[in-house]
């Protein structure tokens, strides 16, 4: 992660990130036979992003596909390709460079032009709506919220991969607070997915999709999230209590904390409380450690993997898509 480092172009950041993943995996580009990318045209300010960026991610004369999705979906597709025998070793990479563009104006352009755009709504406002719904149901719970925000900042400070505090926070509207905001970052994240024996393996993947119109959704139940996690756990033949680690993507602290209630880890109303109490939940510091669509699901996966290496056996990473987490992806990973 970095912020507005003018010494690198976007392609150079991507090259550096993917090279580092190859190096960390003790492999070289010649061993790679496919590439799955997650990148978004508007974030990248290149109207067909992968045309310019895919070669920087190792796609030269390789089988490559780009999703306009969260990075964890790319990981899932790469997993499918490996499982199908179509690929032996696949680069999965996702990125977003918040410092080059203006996320909130891009987000406004994602809203329905007839019904929603006139009000200037952004992803941040959807997060605020969700929190307001929760506050309506459970009351202010100020102590837990403040404590969760403090703990999150502590964890982000301890995360060696986190963006430093010179990067700006995304501005939020009430009832969200400044210390619940994501810290903007330029992020490239890459992983290698292959069929050969490895210390870490993916044992379950789940996908969920919510209603199209935000107004049709249950703000707190979040069926997309719930389905994704349940499916991933089901495939891994595990339950929530078997997991040592949860890395959950949410744009704001509220999204992260309330997700714990939706997946059934926290009691209703105790999302912030559990977030503050448990060091197994977003030990990376979540979006306070750096945030940029569409890299975050893969960042959560990488954090989960690196922390499992250091201790713990099983973890889950959750990624989410735009328009208020309309689709969600969960990946269970286990270390031997």
């Amino acid at each position: 992660m970095s912020w507005a480092d003018a010494s690198y172009s976007l392609e150079e950041l991507i090259f550096k990130g993917v090279k580092r993943a190859l190096h960390a995996s003790k492999t070289c580009i010649d061993a790679v036979d496919s590439v799955v990318l997650a990148a978004h045209d508007l974030v990248d300010g290149r109207s067909l992003s992968s045309m310019v960026t895919a070669p920087a991610a190792g796609a030269y004369l390789r089988d490559e596909i780009r999703l306009a999705e969260d990075g964890l979906v790319a990981l899932s597709l790469a997993g499918a390709r490996v499982a199908a025998g179509e690929s032996e070793l696949s680069i999965v990479a996702a990125w977003g460079r918040a410092s080059e563009g203006d996320f909130l104006s891009q987000s406004r352009a994602a809203m329905d032009p007839f019904l929603v755009q006139p009000f200037g709504l952004t992803e941040a406002d959807i997060s605020a709506f969700r929190l307001s719904r929760w506050l309506g149901a459970h009351g202010p719970q100020d102590e837990a919220r403040v404590r969760a925000a403090e703990m999150r900042l502590v964890r982000a400070r301890q995360n060696p991969r986190a963006i430093d505090t010179s990067a700006p926070l995304l501005p939020l509207n009430a009832p969200l607070r400044v210390d619940e905001a994501p810290r903007c970052a330029d992020i490239v994240v890459a992983a290698l997915v292959g069929s050969r024996e490895s210390a870490c393996h993916i044992s379950g993947i789940g996908h969920g999709t919510d209603a199209t119109l935000v107004g049709d959704r249950d703000w707190l139940e979040r069926p997309a999230l719930r389905t994704a996690v349940e499916q991933a756990l089901g495939e891994a033949r595990l339950s929530l209590k078997d997991l040592d680690l949860f890395e959950i993507d949410g744009m704001t602290l509220a999204d992260e904390a309330l997700a714990l209630e939706a997946i059934g880890l926290a009691e209703p109303g105790d999302g912030f409380g559990l977030y503050a109490r448990s060091d197994r939940i977003n030990p990376s510091g979540g979006s306070a450690a750096g945030w940029c669509y569409p890299a975050m699901g893969l960042v959560r996966f990488a954090e989960c993997l690196l922390r499992l290496d250091a201790g713990g056996k099983r973890g889950v990473a959750v990624g989410s898509s735009p328009i208020g987490d309309q689709t969600q992806t969960a990946v269970v990973l286990e270390v031997a």
């Binding site: 690198y8 172009s9 976007l10 150079e12 080059e100 563009g101 352009a109």
Partner: peptide, 12 residues
């Protein structure tokens, strides 16, 4: 949408 494209050290 406004952007500021970083050329990077080499292109610079």
């Amino acid at each position: 949408f406004e952007y500021r494209y970083f050329a990077g050290a080499t292109a610079s």
